[in-house]
Design a protein around this nucleic acid. Structure first.
Lengths: 225, 225
DNA sequence: AGCAAAGTTTAGACCAGACTAAATTTTAAT
DNA sequence: ATTAAAATTTAGTCTGGTCTAAACTTTGCT
């Protein structure tokens, strides 16, 4: 505080969104560069340049041009808080208010920025301090830690092997409805019956039916290790 | 749509707040003039001038300088929607998540602008389509109507008469906690034991205890007709 | 090593919504 | 009828966040 950092800016919803996105991209082992961040945030690269500069001045990120952005401890704390809000809200909407898993992302996307810590606490308590949201995404703990979930995808399961689904890393509503229709949801027990060559589809048996899933889609579906 | 009104602006949270405030002030029979609206919105009068001009261009209000602002049909529709959100959220927080009535106003103040119509519907259904919020404030119906509640206040009840409390028109958290501590909440049955002269306090018996309430406070407490 | 493509930043504009300070208009009190 | 006080508006500035267009830097391919 000896330096002239008194000019601290506000952590607005937009700032929270940038931090959240940076966190999630790094977590997914993507490079967080101006262009890729712009694509994720649906803004132009020049807007990212300006915002990253502001975030750096707030002490929330560090930026190495042409290399990437990463969060400081403060930035990460905020990102995890927002992600915790998001995932708690998603689960609450499904468990308590009867939403389906394809409906909750958009709703949580705005609510995550405006709920108080008190409301967050009540929601968490009401849900019994859950570990994962309806998509199987882990919910950051209050202490700012985020446990890892499985990293093995359905496309990595050997043919003729069973696996229990734990997570679906996709927030497209139509695909989520499609998967739910097939019974492909966290918790389901499935058998991989075939994996076509040349990046072809992955066939799985759910109950008595067999469904062929596009390889890229199968890669977003994670199974228990 | 033949005129050049295609330049329609967005109904932002700030716009919603102005409309809501204008509605509530008129409903309370207050004049809605630049200065009084500025005081309510906690902005400077010049900001109100600018915003009222914008609202008028959007067709949401009409403004007669030195006389007052009033809502158009469209403006009123939006105002009532926001008030419906606000009051449903307040009740939900109390009934489902264990909030107290003094905690919910601030929370609802931001949530009211961001919940979807779907979430509003789920909340209303979950609560059984309630008529009033925790303060006894009526909840606007889906059809855009807002039933009146009682208009007689505790200060209008004759001495040595009983009355049932139906509404507390105060959103100050400390006063609400104070009143709750006395048992002065909607639904309570009280007896007015004395009304002091010269705008003096109103004494009420709640259960076995007698409490003296400031006249202005008593006037915010409405009783059944 | 040279050069095009890709990535990044700068410069300048815009919008919403607030502000201050100054001007203007209306009201109300003598 | 005058005039002081109150109310309102105008003019210009600021901030956060976006944009386009143009410039600049790095990377990577031949």
């Amino acid at each position: 505080m000896t330096t002239a950092e008194n000019l601290a800016q506000a952590v607005t919803p937009v700032v929270e969104d940038y931090l959240k996105t940076i966190y999630l991209m790094r977590r997914a082992h993507e490079q967080v560069k101006t262009v890729s961040l712009a694509a994720r945030m649906k803004v132009k690269p020049s807007s990212v340049t300006a915002m990253v500069k502001a975030l750096a001045e707030m002490g929330l990120v560090e930026h190495e041009p042409y290399y990437g952005v990463h969060l400081t401890a403060n930035g990460e704390r905020i990102a995890l808080e927002v992600i915790r809000h998001h995932r708690l809200i998603e689960l609450y909407l499904v468990e308590v208010l009867g939403f389906t898993w394809d409906e909750v992302h958009e709703e949580a996307e705005v609510l995550e920025h405006v709920i108080s810590e008190k409301l967050e606490a009540r929601i968490a308590a009401h849900l019994g301090h859950p570990a994962v949201d309806p998509h199987g995404d882990p919910i950051p703990k209050l202490d700012g830690t985020l446990p890892d979930t499985a990293t093995r995808s359905l496309a990595d399961v050997p043919e003729r092997t069973s696996a229990r689904l734990v997570r679906v890393c996709d927030q497209n509503a139509e695909r989520l409805r499609y998967l739910a229709g097939l019974g492909v949801v966290p918790g389901a027990e499935v058998m991989v019956t075939a994996i076509a060559p040349f990046e072809g589809p992955v066939s799985v048996r759910v109950g008595k039916k067999i469904h062929a899933l596009d390889r890229r889609l199968a890669q977003t579906i994670l199974v228990e290790d």
